Computed example of a mutant assay.
Amino acid sequence: MQKLLALVVGFWLEPGPRRDERGLSQSTENAILLAGAIAVATIVVTAVTLYVRARMPGGE
C-alpha cells in the first residue's frame, strides 16, 4: 500500500514536460521574413521606376 501511495504522490508532484520557448514561433518568423521581402521589393521597384522616368525623353 505504501508503494502505491508513494507512486501516486510521486506522479502527482512530478513537474510537467518543459517547453522550449527560445526564439520566435514559426508563424512570427515567417511574417517578419515576408514583411522584409515586401519592403525590399518595394524599394527595388521604386528605384527602378525613378531611374527609368529620369531617363525618358521629355521627362523632367
Rank of each mutant, 00 (worst) to 15 (best):
M1Q: 03
M1G: 06
K3L: 15
K3T: 09
L4K: 00
L4D: 00
L5V: 12
L5D: 13
A6L: 11
A6S: 04
A6P: 00
A6K: 01
L7A: 04
L7T: 01
V8Y: 03
V9S: 02
V9G: 01
G10I: 00
F11S: 11
L13I: 10
L13V: 08
E14N: 09
E14Q: 07
G16H: 09
R18K: 10
R18D: 12
R19V: 14
R19E: 14
R19W: 13
D20T: 03
D20L: 08
E21L: 05
R22Y: 12
G23Y: 03
G23S: 07
L24S: 15
S25E: 07
S27Y: 02
S27E: 15
S27M: 12
T28N: 05
T28D: 12
T28G: 05
T28A: 13
E29M: 08
E29G: 05
E29K: 02
N30Q: 14
N30S: 07
N30T: 10
N30E: 04
N30M: 05
N30I: 08
A31P: 00
A31I: 07
A31Q: 10
A31C: 10
I32C: 04
L33H: 08
L33T: 08
L34I: 06
A35M: 01
A35V: 12
A35K: 05
A35H: 03
G36H: 04
A37H: 10
A37N: 12
A37R: 01
A37W: 06
A37D: 04
I38N: 08
I38A: 15
A39I: 01
A41C: 14
I43P: 00
I43G: 01
V44L: 05
V45D: 08
V45H: 09
V45K: 09
V45L: 15
V45W: 06
T46G: 05
A47L: 10
V48N: 14
V48H: 08
V48P: 00
T49H: 12
L50Q: 13
L50P: 06
Y51T: 07
Y51H: 11
V52W: 02
V52K: 07
V52G: 02
R53V: 15
R53Y: 10
A54G: 06
R55K: 15
R55N: 13
R55A: 09
M56F: 10
P57R: 11
P57Q: 04
P57I: 08
G58I: 01
G58S: 06
G58L: 04
G59P: 01
G59F: 07
G59L: 10
E60Y: 14
